[in-house]
Simulated scan of single mutants.
Amino acid sequence: MKKLKPLGLILFSFIISLTAYSQSENAEGKSSADLAKQLANPNATLGQMLFPIDYIRYNGEVDNAAQNGYVLNFQPSLPFPISEGINLYLRPLIPIYLSQPVIGDNGFESKGGLGNISADLAIGKTWPSKWITLVGVFAGFRTASNEALKSRQNTLGPEMMIAKLTNFGAVGFIASHAFGVGNLSDADPSTTTILPDDFWVASDGTANTSVTAGQYFYTINLSNGWQINATPTYAYNHRAESGNKLTLPLGTGFQKVVLFGKVPVRFGAQYWYYIASPDTFGPQHHFRVTVAPVIPLPW
């Protein structure tokens, strides 16, 4: 039962977010199309409870590298308005690995449980030119419930975003750098999970974590609240061996805001194809389904 607690917490948060609107008006009576356009703004003052669900198909040069991974994520986004066009963000990301391939002594195994929680704290500003900038800090924590799922170190580093609101929607780019903080874990990197934030470390396992990562994103507004969008994530592991440093997908997808009475919910689906992935073992295909209730800010 202990392994189900994080999943139960996520499901409880989902139910709470769906019922929050029972005590409030539907985003000031806006239509689904209006809400979709507002949500395309990465500095919008709308609260969301994001539930991205991932299926990842792995491949590589190691034996039996064709593996499948399934991850349920929870990421609440509740911006705190400071002044007109300036917002403060604290956004934790809580992954639940339903099934993650792990390289062990006897080949691949499948592990599950709470993953490594990360969070960013940042301030975003929308300028009169419709450019948006964001600066902050990003941190990752070794919180995984299974030792095989833990990252090698806690991490901390700077984060920035540049985005542009356009006539068709929005486009932008996020970058952060994770420096290893504290002692390295004693785990042998050749016998532990190869996670998206640490695909392949130096063969001797002695170097501190140093990963530049982020995402690019775009949204194209269509009619009736439909949008073409994608938010692919990339990573460059400076400590990895040659051929295993860069992870870069091309992605596209669609999303739509649907009103359930007073409750707006954003549904989306994306596909990412990796044009660069660690040679030894890394992702090849990535399917993501997102369910994101839009909730009133508590302040």
Rank of each mutant, 00 (worst) to 15 (best):
T166E: 04
K130F: 00
R152Q: 14
F168S: 07
T219W: 00
Q215R: 07
T126Y: 02
R152E: 10
N146P: 06
P158S: 04
F141C: 06
S190N: 14
G140H: 06
G140K: 03
L149H: 12
G157M: 07
I123W: 08
D198Q: 15
F138N: 08
A163V: 09
M161L: 10
D198T: 12
T191V: 09
N183I: 09
A175C: 03
D120I: 06
G182W: 02
I132R: 02
W127V: 01
A175F: 01
S176N: 07
V171P: 02
D188T: 00
A139P: 00
F168T: 02
N221S: 11
V181H: 04
G214F: 04
G214Q: 09
L121F: 06
I220P: 00
F199G: 13
A163G: 09
A170F: 02
N154T: 04
N167G: 06
W127N: 00
A178P: 11
I162H: 01
A213V: 03
Y218V: 02
I132K: 05
V211L: 12
P158E: 04
F138I: 03
T126V: 10
A213L: 10
M160G: 12
M161R: 10
I174C: 01
D204T: 14
A148Q: 14
G124W: 12
G157Y: 05
G205V: 10
G136T: 06
T155M: 08
G214M: 07
G180L: 05
A139Y: 07
N146G: 14
I123A: 06
H177E: 03
I123G: 02
I194P: 15
I123C: 11
N221M: 10
W131R: 02
S129C: 01
K164L: 05
A187F: 13
A187T: 06
F141P: 01
V171W: 01
I174L: 07
T166L: 01
V137F: 00
Q215N: 11
R152M: 05
S190H: 14
A170W: 01
W200D: 15
